[in-house]
Design a protein around this nucleic acid. Structure first.
Lengths: 241, 241
DNA sequence: GCGTTGACTATTGTCTGACAATCTCGATAG
DNA sequence: CTATCGAGATTGTCAGACAATAGTCAACGC
């Protein structure tokens, strides 16, 4: 009873529904600003309107969806200021996570963190984007596990989901991947040295660098959207995979 | 349009319903562990089951309510470890808020923070508990306003709500109020000196002190509950004001 | 030609009722 | 006293209904 393995593995229709929509948003299957009419969410998930609405309410509270009165759910968009705020918050939390990791993580977890970093490097060298993503997730899992604070982990998970939209930006930007790897190695090194202050600082720097890039991409995208005029936000129709 | 005055002032039935239940939980009208059958929530709020369920889903995501499958919603309880984690997270966030306040707040807000602190002291000296609560809220509002990060403010608001259960513990504990006031004045002084590091440190210390007390109260309460045996968690019936 | 008005449609917000699945608790038998 | 079983209560999910509201677009007047 001490473990928490079945934390989020409900089998109810509602949980499956919420997971399905959340995954679709986080994975980029549904794009920011895109409308999500309840009927189409019903078709997508197979659930009834009532159940879909409960799931939407949950995702809304998580910040992934915004509901416009009498217009329905929309995949949340982030203004530049909102993105800045969220990245700043993420830097705080991930910095603290790094500090707590140094203070609390077992030697095994320290090794695991280093391994994950090198695994990311390997995947990147091989051009394996899926591997990069998977191991980046693993990095976060190991980090929060070592920090040993469930509330912190939960908060970071929510933030990661909200920022998932920018996730692909780091891949295609010249030189970014190399710098990112250097930052991750810096974190691993600081952790191995059990230097809490250095670990915190390098975590913060890592996120700040990611934020800088993401904000550039966001600004670019905004500009593109402005040029495209008031483009109709497409619905799910015709958005089949 | 630049302000955000109508942030959470929806007039829909669902929003009113969620606010009503949230207020009841945060204010202590409903106690932790207490069951909240949907029918009674309907009676309490006047809304239908569907609407109540949507509101419950929202409060569940906020962490205020826990739903047990086929048993229904329950006011969330906090284990000692959970409370410890949340207080630790709060200390981080409020520390960062203090730091950002020093870096960003206008002189007017610095004055407002000091005024709020002294107002708390005055209310406490007068035995005005309502005033203490109100001005404590005001302190948080001023602090987060000066920190100028909406995401941080939102995260702190959620945490405050989750910890609202312990709010009354600080009042009746010999000497606690005086120490608390000293801590708050320390924060105000650090902020007035525009000393970011000192502000952060004093905010962290303030929360750590509050956490220490709250955890003692929690342990005491746990012990009491253990002595009382597996007492049936009461429902809303007969819990009229 | 262009802006305004008004009806029409699509969608959401909310309620009601229904039914199966599951939990709770008391009765009953050993 | 304990274990089993069944009735009742509550949740989980669905389907349908209706009013309220936003968006669309054609008709109309200037």
């Amino acid at each position: 009873m001490d473990d928490a393995e079945h934390e989020r593995s409900g089998f109810g229709v509602r949980e499956i529904t919420a997971d399905r929509i959340r995954t679709a948003v986080v994975s980029g299957e549904l794009l920011p600003g895109q409308r999500l009419p309840e009927r189409e969410l019903c078709a997508l998930t197979g659930a009834s309107r009532a159940t879909v609405r409960e799931a939407v309410r949950q995702l809304e509270t998580e910040g992934l969806i915004t509901t416009i009165p009498y217009r329905g759910p929309v995949v949340s968009t982030l203004s530049e200021q909102e993105a800045r705020d969220i990245y700043e918050l993420r830097a705080m939390l991930e910095g603290q996570a790094g500090r707590l990791f140094v203070e609390r993580a077992s030697d095994e977890l320290v090794v695991a963190l280093r391994c994950t970093v090198e695994e990311i490097g390997r995947a990147h060298a091989a051009g394996d984007m899926v591997g990069v993503i998977a191991n980046s997730d693993e990095f976060y899992v190991v980090l929060t596990k070592g920090a040993a604070n469930k509330a912190l982990s939960q908060a970071l998970l929510t933030i990661h989901n909200r920022l998932a939209l920018f996730r692909f930006s780091s891949t295609r930007w010249p030189g970014r991947a190399e710098r990112s790897m250097a930052e991750l190695r810096e974190i691993a090194t600081a952790v191995e040295a059990r230097d809490a202050a250095a670990a915190e600082a390098s975590c913060v720097r890592h996120i700040e660098a990611a934020a800088e890039l993401a904000l550039m991409v966001l600004a670019e995208r905004m500009q593109g959207a402005a040029i495209a005029g008031r483009s109709r936000a497409p619905s799910l129709i015709g958005a089949k995979s």
